[in-house]
Design a protein around this nucleic acid. Structure first.
Lengths: 206, 206
DNA sequence: ACCGGCATTAACCATTTGGTTAAACCATGA
DNA sequence: TCATGGTTTAACCAAATGGTTAATGCCGGT
């Protein structure tokens, strides 16, 4: 269940891993230093010895979480591919990333919502990849009539929505759609194929 | 900014409204009874006079939030319409609901994620609308070849994802896509048209 | 053997937090 | 007018929480 960035038995790392687990699951407000200490199997004072405060510890963990998602996004936005291929790759790697770290989007969304200032100032990196090149590429395809007319921004948001949301809303979906844990798993596994098909079908020129 | 269910100056209502604001914005963990009391302009002891505990107060507020979304969903799942019309109506009313109450999905998602047991046992109503009829309708359309082949569950999840996610991820999207507050507003206003078009285009039989 | 310095802990501290209590307030009806 | 019942408050309490301190453990180098 834990997801240490690098397996490492040092006390510092044990603390970081424990903090990672706790912050991910409970967020800044719900996380308690005592619980982190307990999970790391050490004294509470050690937390402050290695990381000065809850705030600092949180920031390190949050940055680590964010930076696990960034390479995939950067990759998608920077590599050159025909549009269809690019979409396919994005959906593939993005769903793959989120399947393996389903807590990332929920964490980002809820923390960013509760403490936007802290998150933007102290957690998000200064340089975040910009989607301008992708937008240009989509616009070219539209202009050339190879896909139907759509605003690039909407296409991007649609892609991201279709990939992320089901994982974010998993508990709610399970109840509404009425699936057991196993059905849910297969359902989410089908998503990759389904999402690609859904987007491609929608983009076919009229 | 506040959103009292029914304007009413009674102390009880003032407390409820204040609690609504605070819980919505900070969730169970981040909300403090003192802040609720302050916003309601009353003594902290009064909170416990009207609502026995933080837990109880939270449950009432959370139930109220949930029940604001339910009628729209129930309506969509129960009324009879041709599929295309149904989708149009769903997107319209759903996006409308969320535009006016953008905090609902974030609240539900993050609270349900942090305290699934409490939420499922004490907040969610026993009877939640089931989408079986909708699934059947989609399947009929597929069988009749009037839309391309797609699993009804995926279609529903896609619809919901496209409607909700942009509102949920607004702060993140703003940064990634690089929009200012005004651009974001127009962008979200375009969503209704865009989402309907996106879904319809995708469903056209091959 | 022992020194010096990092690692670790128990005990402690101040503040915050959810919750309680007993007294005061205030309107209403007898 | 005053008794009564619901309403509101100041003061208080115990537990939890983030953080500190001073002492101890421990290990490598001399």
């Amino acid at each position: 269940m834990s997801n240490p960035v690098q397996p490492n038995d040092s006390t510092e790392q044990k603390i970081f891993d424990a903090a990672h687990e706790v912050f991910i699951q409970k967020g800044m407000d719900g996380a308690k230093m005592q619980e982190i200490a307990d999970r790391a199997g050490i004294n509470k004072a050690l937390l402050h010895y290695y990381y000065r405060s809850k705030e600092k510890l949180y920031e390190m963990v949050a940055r680590a979480i964010i930076s696990r998602a960034l390479p995939v996004i950067r990759d998608f936005l920077e590599t050159e591919h025909p549009l269809e291929e690019k979409i396919r790759l994005f959906v593939h790697f993005y769903i793959d990333l989120i399947s393996r770290n389903p807590y990332i989007p929920i964490f980002v969304i809820s923390e960013m919502n509760k403490h936007p200032d802290r998150f933007i100032e102290n957690v998000l990196p200064k340089e975040i990849p910009k989607p301008d090149a992708f937008f240009r590429q989509v616009q070219e395809e539209v202009d050339a009539g190879r896909i139907r007319s759509i605003k690039p921004q909407h296409l991007l948001v649609n892609m991201v929505s279709l990939c992320i949301f089901p994982f974010v809303a998993k508990p709610m979906l399970r109840i509404v759609v009425g699936m057991n844990s196993q059905e849910m798993r297969t359902f989410l596994e089908e998503r990759e194929t389904e999402v690609v098909r859904f987007i491609m079908a929608s983009l076919k020129p009229d």
